[in-house]
Amino acid sequence: MIHIEKGDPFSADSQALIEKLSIVLAQITGSSGKHSFNIDDLQSARAVWALARNAQGVAIGCGAIRPLTQETAELKRMYSAGSEAGVGSAILRFLEEAASELGYRAITLETRRVNHKAVTFYQKYGYTVTDNYGAYIGRDEAVCFIKTL
C-alpha cells in the first residue's frame, strides 16, 4: 500500500529523498540536478511537495509542482526509491490532481535524454515532447515534456 501526502520539503524524510535523487541523477546524467531546483520555490501557495510512504510509514518517494506560469506548473524532483512498484505513478497522479485543483491547465518538466527510464515513464503517462523552455533552451542534453490537464 502506498500513501501519498502533502509534505514539508524541509523535513528530514524529504531531505533524505532529495539527496538520494541527486546521487542517482549524478550517476545517470553526470549532474545532480541541484542547480535547477530551488526548494524555496515550494513556498508558493500554488506549489505542492508530495511524499510517498509505504504501509510502515517509511518515506519511499517524492515529487513537486511549482508555478511556471499562471496556467502551467513545472514538475520537479520526482523520485522513487524503487522499493515498491507504482510509487512514481501514484506521486504523478497526486501531483496532477493537485495541479488541476490549483487551476493549472498543463504540467511541464525537463529531464535528460540519457535518463531513458524517466523519458519512457513520462511518455507512458501522456507527456509529449515540447520545445525546451527557460534554462533548458539550447541544451541538447535536455528534453522537455508537457501534458495538458
Rank of each mutant, 00 (worst) to 15 (best):
H35Y: 09
A90P: 03
D40T: 14
G134W: 01
Y122S: 03
T148R: 05
T72G: 11
H116D: 14
F145A: 02
L42W: 03
L75D: 08
I18Y: 13
N115H: 14
L17S: 00
S80A: 15
G138D: 02
L149E: 09
T69I: 05
Q70V: 15
V87K: 00
Q123G: 08
I4D: 04
I39D: 05
I18M: 14
I65A: 10
A64Q: 09
I4E: 01
A81T: 07
A52I: 00
L149A: 04
I2H: 10
E71D: 11
K124M: 03
A106R: 13
S32I: 06
T148M: 10
G126Y: 10
L21G: 07
P9F: 03
S89R: 10
C144I: 01
A55Q: 15
G61S: 09
I18L: 08
V143M: 05
Y79W: 01
V119W: 09
N115T: 13
A81W: 07
V24H: 14
Y125D: 00
E19P: 04
V119G: 11
E71C: 05
D8C: 04
E74F: 00
A85P: 03
I23S: 14
K117T: 08
A99V: 10
T108C: 09
L21T: 11
E5K: 07
R139L: 14
T69P: 00
A16L: 05
K117S: 12
P67E: 05
L109G: 02
R66I: 03
I4A: 07
G126E: 04
T128S: 03
A99W: 03
S89E: 14
L21Q: 10
I137D: 10
R113S: 15
I4N: 09
A98L: 00
L95M: 01
F94C: 14
A142T: 06
T29L: 11
S14P: 05
F94D: 10
Q70L: 07
A47K: 06
T72W: 02
E110Y: 08
P67L: 11
G138V: 11
V143L: 02
G138W: 09
A64V: 15
Y133T: 12
D131Q: 07
I107V: 07
T69Y: 01
S44I: 07
K6A: 08
G63T: 04
A50P: 06
L42R: 03
A47Y: 04
W49I: 01
A64S: 15
N115D: 13
A73C: 01
S36Y: 15
R53I: 11
G88N: 11
V114T: 13
L25E: 15
A135F: 14
S89T: 13
L42N: 05
R93G: 06
S11V: 08
T130L: 02
V87E: 12
H35V: 11
G30S: 08
Y122E: 00
E84L: 09
E71F: 06
V24G: 10
I146G: 06
A45S: 04
F94Y: 14
